[in-house]
Amino acid sequence: MSADLPLVLGIETSCDETGVGIVRGEELLVDAIASSVDEHARFGGVVPEVASRAHLEAMVPTLERACTQAGVRLADLDAISVTSGPGLAGALMVGVAAAKSLAVALGVPLYGVNHLASHVAVDIVEHGPLPEPTLALLVSGGHSSLLLVPDVTHDVQSLGSSIDDAAGEAFDKVARVLGLPFPGGPHIDRAAREGDSVAIDFPRGLTSGRDMERHRFDFSFSGLKTAVARWVEARERSGEPVPVGDVAASFQEAVVDVLTRKAVLACRENGVEHLQIGGGVAANSRLRAMAQERCDAAGISLRVPRPGLCTDNGAMVAALGAQMVLKGRAPSELSLPADSSMPVTAVQA
């Protein structure tokens, strides 16, 4: 092992970002990304075949860029890690095949790892070793999950998740209703700053009595999205202008309120003193602010990686791979599949 600490390259292709990250131990050396998001924007969502084509084209150039920027030769690597699921099947396969080929060509071990666990592990290269246990709130266009994480390399438990739309998906759909571009998150965040977050009382899904028994740590954003659409349509029908800022702020407040309320409750009830937020929606300024307020009030320490590490990237996969090596976990088989519906409880393939 070079320089004592393992040098691990991670590959992420579960959606529309081709990510290659390199980590030495718990230090991030490089996070190279090629995104096909612009190609998807005109469709209002990710087109799987477009994403897969882009991954094939971007793979070698992104590997090359990562190594050059990190000043690392592929021959120096101690291990390869790759997102083996969950994600878009065809997209995952490009990354998994690439990672296997690297492992065979270089004669190093391969770790197929869970995308969600990687979202948690990335904070290690940002804020140091992960407190154990940690509670993780992962919110993005594809997932809204509350995870209890006693050990990110082999024990991740799901407390709850969205029963319909993912949080980021709701942002995209509401943005479309308001005539804002895809992806909706940053545009809603910006519009909300000009608006009043208590102007409209939008519903908080799965927070009432019965729901709190059956879906204590689950989320639902579909009803909220519909409520926003109805409200806007009613305004338009009456010929009045739509107060985009107020709608954006009130919608955002409803999402963020539920997310942070349930996350803090989950911490309390599981006796966990550390909350980490990850996923693309973690870049939302209101989510960060409200989470900080509520964690401070509850005596919980809050960790949120910088926005670039919250969205999908290769660094998070490398970070988890390096933890696997450091904790002496056995590598994956070369025959490991890409598993589009890999359960969050399976950290490694």
């Binding site: 029963i163 980021g168 693309g280 359960p343």
Partner: peptide
Amino acid sequence: APSHPRKPVTQAAPHGRA
């Protein structure tokens, strides 16, 4: 056609963007 992430009823959350 853009992907519509499948709606999970259980914990195995599918994954779309970021």
